[in-house]
Computed example of a mutant assay.
Amino acid sequence: MKLLRLAFALLASVLAAAPASAWWEWGHETIAGIAMHEVRPGTRAAIRQLLRHAPELATPTCKLRTIEDASVWPDCIKQLGERFSYAYSWHYQNIDICKPFDIKTPCRDGNCVSAQIDRNRKLLADKSLPARERLMALAFLVHFVGDLHQPMHAGDHGDLGGNRVKADYGIAQGRINLHSIWDGYLAERAISTPPAGVAGLISEIAPAGRAAEAAGSTEDWSRENWQIAHDVAYGGLYGGDPCLPAPEAKPVLSNAAIEAAIPVVRKQVERGGVRLARLLDEALG
């Protein structure tokens, strides 16, 4: 047991030191993989055609050969400094979970994830634009739909989406916070739980319910994930009302809370995939 605790602590330290990226890679790539499976054949062909224009973006250190690459490209380009710094605030929307839902304030001037999903879907659909611009819109759209379905990108409590909330993940200790728990630890646990991966999650999506899961607007999806942030992310960590003063001691996401969150995370990954497929079909089908 002592060795197991040491291994978890080492893993937590290494992963926490890595550059932050929503859902880490696996969550984004799984959502993209579900979407690529769900889109119409014509949409799939159009995506592959756009991806052939990747050299025109001149980001050789951030590959863009597949839809899975596209799903993480907007995080990769953060390393390119000022060239893409304008997009930094597009990955999230800090809507306070302890106040009435309000999407207008954090999305003023379009600088939030839901507004950028809508914007990039329109750019992707505009065939008068150069392929280079439409490919960039494709990558942003794929990534931002993934971001929005990570609840810590849809709700917060004055703590940068949980980035300032230090917490332990079960027995794992180290430089961990509530945001990184949902970005990586829970996502990987949820996606790897059998039936695992893209095929496993697709198998759980009832054919009769696909249209209902894909329905709604970005505001609807924002409200849904904001509520999950309140009820499951913050609520699960604090074991009660997340709007009460935070305890002085560093909170621990218990094994029971982890088990309760796994099906929630799986459902949001599945929803992200089918909703992204719908947007891609609307833009390219």
Rank of each mutant, 00 (worst) to 15 (best):
E188N: 13
E188K: 12
R189Y: 11
R189D: 12
R189V: 13
A190G: 14
A190N: 14
I191A: 06
I191L: 14
I191Y: 06
I191F: 00
S192E: 07
S192N: 11
S192F: 02
T193M: 14
T193D: 14
P194E: 10
P194C: 08
P194N: 11
P194Q: 12
P194L: 03
P195R: 15
P195W: 08
P195L: 15
P195E: 14
P195Y: 09
P195T: 12
A196K: 12
A196P: 05
A196M: 11
A196H: 05
G197T: 10
G197F: 04
V198M: 08
V198P: 08
A199Q: 07
A199I: 12
G200E: 14
G200P: 04
L201K: 10
I202F: 08
I202V: 10
S203V: 01
S203I: 10
S203G: 12
E204P: 03
E204H: 03
I205F: 15
I205L: 09
I205R: 02
A206I: 12
A206V: 15
A206D: 09
A208R: 10
A208Q: 07
A208F: 07
A208T: 14
G209E: 15
G209Y: 13
G209K: 15
R210H: 08
R210D: 00
R210T: 10
R210G: 01
A211Q: 11
A211I: 09
A212T: 09
A212K: 09
E213K: 14
A214T: 02
A214K: 03
A215I: 02
G216Y: 13
G216R: 11
G216F: 10
E219Q: 07
E219P: 02
E219N: 13
D220V: 01
D220S: 04
D220H: 12
W221C: 11
W221A: 15
S222N: 00
S222E: 09
S222C: 01
S222K: 02
R223W: 06
R223F: 09
R223S: 00
R223E: 05
E224M: 13
N225H: 04
W226R: 03
W226P: 10
W226G: 07
Q227Y: 00
I228Y: 00
I228V: 14
I228K: 02
I228C: 02
H230E: 07
D231S: 06
V232M: 07
V232D: 09
A233F: 08
A233V: 05
A233L: 00
A233K: 01
Y234D: 01
G235F: 04
G235D: 13
G235Q: 03
G235K: 02
G235I: 04
G235C: 11
G235E: 08
G236S: 03
L237A: 06
L237W: 01
L237K: 03
L237G: 03
Y238A: 01
G239F: 07
G239K: 03
G240L: 08
G240T: 12
G240R: 04
D241L: 10
D241S: 06
D241T: 11
D241I: 11
P242L: 05
P242N: 13
P242K: 10
C243T: 04
C243Q: 05
C243D: 05
